[in-house]
């Protein structure tokens, strides 16, 4: 039976520094730096040693990430990180496996693998850097770019409807689904901790600013003047309320979230957010909320459910079959079926 890596370190912080000696080669000002910094901060706190940590990426700006983390790492093929990560985890469930991907890598060329990873609920953590643009190939629109977006390949505006990443992974059965923003570093660190603690596929979408090809895509969520009016912080058991000067609450009406101005002491009328055991109808309302004009963007943990992980079931089955049949014996295997002796 594999050891449970979620409890192995007992949360005791390690002194290990997860930085490598490689120069970090993202553009100055890129949101990726903040994500790397938070990851390096959180990893030692998890109590899982460098040698048992594996970072796997596909191709894209974000996918350089493993080179900058002193753990085992694998920079693989465009879109295919979930496949490699699945193999790593199935070969050795005692490893803590992180997938680093981007909107092009994870939702265009590799979309199907991501869905199947969530469906199987393999115990790995996905951090998807969503900057709504192709950065490494220098500025083409991505499957999360908004309709009408002008880029090098859509000089007259994009006609491609974007994916809603969280709706997709929720639909595919991901058991831990969260969103955070690159500039909100403390929130991001907390989400990483929660993702690591979850047993099963954890999916974290990070809104990440590409200051070269799509600068300001998330400005409304990061600008101190506007962010409070546009961000809805999800907290388990807490009401759906947000706002700067004016405070708003959200309640469920006619199968949708509707907004009301929440005066003093009116938070209680807002819907209480629950991460666990909620139906898809509710999760969809949250995932689609920021597509509704005037509605805020939820960040935090959308879902935190438990169901058996594929990797654990694989080894349970191996153990069960071995108990029933006895440990494999080549000689017996060879002599299966009709045999005959030649003298």
């Amino acid at each position: 039976m594999a050891k449970d890596l979620h409890t192995e370190g007992n949360g005791a912080a390690l002194k290990e520094n997860f930085a490598t000696d490689q120069d970090v080669r993202w553009c100055p000002g890129c949101g990726d730096y903040a994500i790397l910094a938070q990851m390096k901060k959180v990893l030692p706190e998890l109590g899982i040693p460098q040698a048992k940590t594996v970072f796997i990426s596909g191709i894209g700006c974000s996918s350089r990430f493993p080179y900058y983390i002193n753990s085992y790492g694998f920079h693989t093929v465009h879109g295919r990180a979930p496949t490699i990560a699945s193999g790593v985890k199935l070969a050795n469930p005692e490893l803590s496996v992180w997938i680093i991907s981007g909107d092009g890598d994870g939702f265009s060329i590799g979309a199907s693998h991501l869905m199947h990873l969530c469906r199987r609920n393999i115990d790995v953590n996905v951090v998807l850097f969503n900057n709504q643009i192709y950065g490494l190939t220098k500025g083409q629109y991505s499957p999360t770019s908004p309709l009408g977006k002008i880029t090098k390949t859509t000089p007259f505006g994009s006609l491609d409807a974007p994916f809603n990443p969280l709706a997709l992974v929720l639909g595919a059965g991901a058991t831990f689904v969260a969103r955070t923003v690159d500039r909100d570093t403390r929130h991001m660190a907390e989400i990483f901790r929660r993702a690591a603690a979850h047993k099963g596929t954890s999916f974290v979408e990070v809104y990440q600013n590409c200051n070269i090809f799509n600068d300001g895509a998330f400005a409304a969520l990061t600008d101190p003047q506007t962010k409070l009016d546009n961000l809805l912080y999800l907290e388990d058991g807490q009401p759906l309320v947000y706002g700067g000067e004016t405070r708003y609450g959200l309640k469920v009406e006619d199968l949708a979230l509707s907004r009301f101005e929440a005066g003093e002491g009116q938070d209680g009328e807002a819907h209480l957010h629950r991460e666990t055991g909620m139906p898809m109808a509710y999760l969809s309302m949250l995932a689609e909320l920021n597509q509704v004009p005037g509605m805020p963007t939820p960040v935090g943990v959308f879902r935190n459910d438990n169901r058996p992980t594929y990797d654990a079931m694989v080894y349970d089955q191996i153990e069960a079959v071995t108990q029933r049949k006895g440990k494999g014996n080549l000689k017996e295997l060879f002599i299966t079926g009709d045999t005959w002796q030649v003298d």
């Binding site: 496949t83 699945s86 071995t322």
Partner: peptide
């Protein structure tokens, strides 16, 4: 399975080789 074989029916040909390379790495 009683020989410790992990058999994995992947979602497609690419995932099959990808998972296999991942397992080799591990």
């Amino acid at each position: 399975k009683h020989f410790g074989v992990v058999s994995f029916q992947a979602e497609d040909e690419i995932a099959a080789v990808g998972a296999t390379i991942g397992a080799s790495f591990a």
